[in-house]
Write a protein that binds this DNA or RNA. Structure first.
Lengths: 225, 225
DNA sequence: ATCCGGATTGAACAGCTGTTTAGTGTTTGA
DNA sequence: TCAAACACTAAACAGCTGTTCAATCCGGAT
């Protein structure tokens, strides 16, 4: 749960307004004046509190990362991630601005984006290792690379959410963003691939293994669809 | 192959400079003056040829989409996509600016990005259908949603390429972007998942199917790792 | 040779940008 | 009670933005 009351410090109100606008428009498109207007203060006060626009960004980065650090709480406990997802699905609007902010951070060259991506990969790797130990996840030769692939796949929902909801979005309501309806529509296809695979046999995998094993200077290699 | 000669129209030179800068810095961060300087002309000439900065963007969108339309040439021929990938891997720099441009288009709200994503999904769906007919790809209940998932996974390499090369990037050279080395590192893990799956059994899939089948108002559902 | 239409430039424009500064209240601590 | 520290504003500043405009340059048709 989150504190949504309006009893925030002015500084916090400015920060939250900035998170919203940076997430929606991107850092450079969002102006100090727009942030100030949304927070109900003068542009000068924004600079007074954060030194510069870059300082404001640093404060937003720090706050969003701290807010998101919840996810790393109990690393491999499956119940905690389930709870997190449930919490998100029941109150999507609450997290919307943070999610948009992280998407921008992952797109731009941003230290916060780098830190977030690394955290997701690290957590994914822990989950995979725990799953291997528990026997629920297959053993992989290269756990790290596999974790990167899985994390990248998962984050693609965040990065391409706009297009996913555009092409899969139901005709009924739910006009914007990554909603429960969209996630419900993606769950089964993703889990089917993750359970039974995508190809019927290992001929593509074998061919790739073969080609990569004795790769001289020849680069060309089939990669996936 | 591409024509890399410098015998281009001034208009085309401006357009190519704009594609490079729009892809590197994004549409709003890239300035008309910077485009003009890179093309070796005055800012006024840019407007003279394209009417406005937005007109310049439209021209870039059109050109990049036309350039990329190559991929849709022969839809399901596996040899053609292999050739395309080989061509890319042998001359990565040639395509770098277009790839960066498309990434920006997919991130921003852009008609070109929408069109590109839809084209990729359509092509993926064709490939899946052909694969099912040929027996190389598993039959899926919902081919369209599966195609969206696969396309999204594939495009995540494009969207998150910076982070992928950052975390997986070899210590040796190859400092920037999505290079052959990175793709080689991702190929086997991705193909392993696509061949043998990620989970050892179908308990997650079964649980999700069960929960989605009689979903009353309860949303919470485990989604992936 | 001459005229013309397009390519091209340099300078200027209005508007927006982040930031500064001087000034006003308003709290707070001794 | 008084002064210092703080929160806050309005106005202005310099720099950058996209765009305009008059003035050139130049090749090709007449």
């Amino acid at each position: 749960m989150r504190s949504s009351a309006e009893d925030l410090t002015t500084r916090a109100r400015i920060r939250d307004a900035a998170i919203g606008l940076f997430g929606r428009d991107g850092f450079s498109r969002a102006t100090v004046r727009a942030v100030a207007a949304l927070a109900g203060v003068s542009p000068g006060l924004v600079i007074h509190h954060f030194g510069s626009k870059e300082g404001l960004r640093a404060a937003c980065d720090h706050h969003v990362l701290a807010q998101t650090a919840t996810q790393g709480r109990e690393k491999t406990d499956p119940g905690s991630t389930r709870q997190l997802i449930q919490d998100y699905l029941n109150h999507p609007d609450q997290y919307a601005s943070e999610i948009a902010y992280i998407r921008q951070a992952l797109s731009d060259e941003s230290d916060a984006g780098d830190a977030f991506f690394d955290a997701v990969v690290r957590q994914t790797q822990d989950i995979i290792n725990a799953g291997i130990a528990a026997g629920t996840i297959r053993r992989f030769d290269d756990v790290r690379s596999t974790a990167v692939v899985i994390a990248s796949n998962s984050l693609s929902i965040l990065m391409l959410g706009r297009h996913l909801s555009r092409t899969l979005g139901a005709a009924t309501s739910e006009p914007h963003g990554i909603g429960p309806e969209l996630l419900r529509q993606l769950t089964l296809p993703a889990l089917e691939i993750y359970t039974h695979g995508f190809y019927t046999d290992s001929r593509f995998l074998d061919a790739a293994r073969d080609a990569l094993q004795h790769h001289t200077t020849n680069h060309g290699r089939e990669h996936a669809p």
